[in-house]
Amino acid sequence: MKDNMFENTLDIYAHSNNLKDMNAYFKVLFAIVTMLISLISTSPVIPFIIAFFMSFLILFKAKIPWKFYLKFLAVPFSFALLTFVFMAIFFGVGTHVLELGIFNLAVTADGFNLGLLVFARIMGGFTCLAFLALTTPMTELFSILEIFKIPKIVLEIAMLMYRYIFVFLDEALNMYHAQETRLGYSSLKKSFKSLGMLGSNLFIIAWIKGEQAYTAMESRCYNGSIKTLKEPESLRNIGSLNLTLLVLFEVILSIGIYFTGNFRIF
C-alpha cells in the first residue's frame, strides 16, 4: 500500500482487518439483526451485552487497534452520554432519586431509566454498525446492497462517491500542505482566509475533475447507467455452521430480552 496518507482511515482497516475474508453477507446479517435486537430491547441489559460483545469481536477477532477504536467510539459515546444526562434530568416525573441543588433540578427514577435505556441502545446499535464498518470493505457492501434491492441509481451515486472521496481527500490535502508551506495557517485570521480559499478552490477542482471523469467514461461508451457484474452465488452462501451460530446467538439474545425486560436500576 503506497498511499500512507490514508493510513488511519476507516477504509484501510476495513480492507486489512482479520475478519475481512469472512462472508460479507453473513457479517451484514449479523450486524443488522443484532442491532434490531438491541433496539427492541426494553431494558438496558441486553444492549450493553451486545456493545461489549461487539467491541470484543472488533478488538480481539478483527484485531482493530484499541486506540483507533476508542477514537472511533468517542463521538457517539459523548453524544449518548449527553442524551442520558439530559433525559435523566428533564424527562419523567415521580420520585426524585437525586437532588442537584440548583434550579430545583433533580434526577427522577423513570427519567434515569429511560435515559439509561436510550444510552444502552445507542451504544449497542452503534457498536453493531462499527463492527460492520470496520470489518467489511465498502466494495463488498455495494454487492450486498444490490442483493437487498437498493435502487440502482442510489448505488451508482454511492459507488462514485466512495471512489472520489479519496481523490478529493488527496487533492484537499495537497492544497492544504501547499498553503501551510506558505504560512497560510500562521494566525487565526489567516487560517480563516486560507480555509475559505481552500474550500472554493476545491469546489472548482471537483467540478473540473467531474467533467474529466465524464469524458473518460464517455470514451468507454457510457450511456447513463453503470452496469455492475453479478456477484458469484458464493456470496449468498453463508454456510450452515455460520447460519446455525447466527440464529442461535440471536435467539439467545431474544430470550435474554424476555427475561431482563423488566429490569430497572431504580
Binding site: M138, T139, F142, M159, L160, Y162, R163, Y164, V167, D170, K209, Q212, A213, T215, A216, M217, S219, R220, C221, Y222, N223, I226, K227, T228, L229
Partner: peptide, 26 residues
C-alpha cells in the same frame, strides 16, 4: 480506446474489476 493522462480521472469504480468491466458491459 483513449487512455487519459491522469488515471484518477479514468478509474471511477470502487474496485479494479468493476472498472475494467465498465467498457465491455456498456
Amino acid at each position: 480506446g483513449i487512455v487519459f493522462q491522469n488515471p484518477d480521472d479514468q478509474l471511477f469504480a470502487p474496485t479494479v474489476r468493476e472498472d475494467v468491466a465498465f467498457g465491455p458491459s456498456n
